[in-house]
């Protein structure tokens, strides 16, 4: 390959610089202004129960995978009962089990989802009793 001359050197680098600035602009703008993690409010029922279907640490980190598997097993395998690590049984149901205890969806689910900027489409179909009343 013959060596080729680079044309418009200045313009190319200026363009690159503009591109990089645009790319990191949102980060620059929010530098040092990280919002604090939200305090989640547990309902009385949840407080009384002390533990969720699995440990708190596990649920915080993995509730989405757990729910994904719940829905697969319930919808596709017709198995609706979950037996947790300590042998306790639960009906695998977002509306009827999770929300039964976590009655404050807005204070519990939404708060953290908003903070993390995730919009799970669970609620397009599954009903939060509070919101429909």
């Amino acid at each position: 390959m013959p060596k080729k001359k680079m044309y418009d050197r200045g313009k190319v680098f200026a363009g690159l610089a503009v591109f990089v600035v645009l790319l990191i602009f949102p980060f620059l703008l929010n530098l040092g202004k990280a919002a604090p993690a939200p305090e989640l409010k547990l309902s009385d029922k949840a407080k009384a129960a002390k533990e969720c279907v699995e440990s708190k640490a596990y649920m915080t980190a993995n509730h989405m995978q757990l729910l994904n598997e719940w829905r697969e097993t319930v919808v596709r395998n017709a198995q609706r009962v979950y037996v947790n690590s300590s042998g306790k049984k639960f009906e695998m149901s977002l509306s009827n089990t999770c929300l039964d205890c976590h009655t404050e969806k807005a204070e519990f689910c939404d708060k953290c989802h908003n903070y993390a900027a995730v919009t799970p489409y669970c609620w397009d179909c599954h009903v939060d009793p509070k919101e429909t009343m």
Partner: peptide
């Protein structure tokens, strides 16, 4: 199977590590 696409590995790991005296979680029909 879902681990292929959904990254369910943490769940499996948690199941594995929760071993010891405790049993693994499972699912069944009502």
């Amino acid at each position: 199977f879902s681990a292929l696409g959904l990254g369910a590995k943490p769940v499996l790991d948690a199941f594995a590590s929760s071993g010891g005296v405790q049993s693994k979680p499972m699912v069944m029909k009502g």
